[in-house]
């Protein structure tokens, strides 16, 4: 077994992701805008009720929002565009004609596409919302540095797991696309789930007490919410280890079940014809 085909699939999608520079700039502007609006909303809510003991301080909520915005393209919103196109045109049969492990082949491409989209945006937005905002005197609204060195290191590890977890969830959307021969379903299911459950709409720590354990335990929390909590140093019940453990648990579970689902899907394609 050689790694080369998988590295090649990764390299290809990474390149495609980087090719759309205008989209990076446009996305950056949109995310700055959404970030700023969200921040103003938090500021007025927090100032309106200064006595309430919120699970996140205003400063933490702002930092949460900036990181969340900078990682927006890391979310599993739908299938890999290349797989969606291939499903529509029927070129997906060529994927069955390659001497490769289909799961690893698609996963490499998916991970590369997510990272190729997210990494440049994340770095740019972090620079603008962090050091640049402080320099121009908007320090109170800026992205705060990590809680401490350990938080920095662990959140880096955690975001790596988050990217893998997101790619694994996208694999489920890819399989759904291969089954229905259309990418639409994956977006219809994926986008609301990912936006809501990842904490993009409202940070998961700000939900009511009774629902928070469930929100933390579901797989979408592992993409950005857990890495951000570790970065902020806000308590996760059981500590950072629980967060990393949850990520690993979902990564393993979704990979195992996803591979089974893929096996069954390929069998079905083989039985009913693509």
């Amino acid at each position: 077994m050689t790694l080369r085909p998988y590295l090649t699939a990764f390299g290809l999608q990474w390149k495609i992701g980087l090719r759309y520079r205008i989209a990076v700039i446009a996305g950056l502007v949109a995310q700055m805008w959404f970030g700023a609006v969200t921040l103003m909303a938090y500021a007025s809510v927090y100032h309106a009720a200064p006595d309430v003991q919120a699970p996140l301080s205003l400063r933490q909520a702002m930092t949460y929002t900036w990181i969340q915005q900078s990682l927006f393209t890391l979310l599993p919103l739908g299938c890999l565009p290349a797989i969606g196109d291939a499903a529509k045109t029927g070129a997906i049969v060529y994927d069955l004609l390659r001497p490769v492990d289909m799961w690893n082949w698609w996963l490499s491409a998916t991970l590369a596409r997510l990272l190729g989209n997210a990494v440049p945006r994340a770095i740019l937005l972090a620079c603008v919302a962090g050091p640049l905002a402080m320099l121009v005197g908007l320090g109170a609204w800026s992205l705060a540095p990590p809680a401490d060195m350990a938080a920095a290191a662990l959140s880096l590890l955690s975001i790596t797991l988050g990217a893998l977890l997101s790619a694994t969830i996208v694999m489920w959307w890819n399989i759904l696309t291969a089954r229905t021969l259309s990418p639409l379903g994956s977006y219809a299911v994926g986008t609301p789930l990912a936006v809501l459950l990842s904490g993009m709409l409202l940070p998961l720590p700000l939900y009511p007490d009774w629902i928070r354990p469930f929100l933390l335990a579901q797989p979408f929390a592992g993409i950005t919410d857990i890495p951000i909590r570790i970065y902020l140093g806000t308590p996760i019940p059981g500590g950072a280890v629980t967060g990393l453990g949850l990520q690993l648990f979902w990564l393993a579970t979704l990979t195992l079940l996803g591979r089974l689902w893929m096996r069954q899907t390929v069998n079905r394609l083989e039985v009913q014809g693509a």
């Binding site: 029927g90 070129a91 001497p99 490769v100 492990d101």
Partner: peptide, 17 residues
């Protein structure tokens, strides 16, 4: 499948690889 497809070439005229 994997050993088999490594030794054949296929062109579907109406689809692109």
């Amino acid at each position: 499948r994997v050993a088999h497809v490594a030794r054949i070439g296929v062109v579907f005229g109406q689809r692109t690889q």
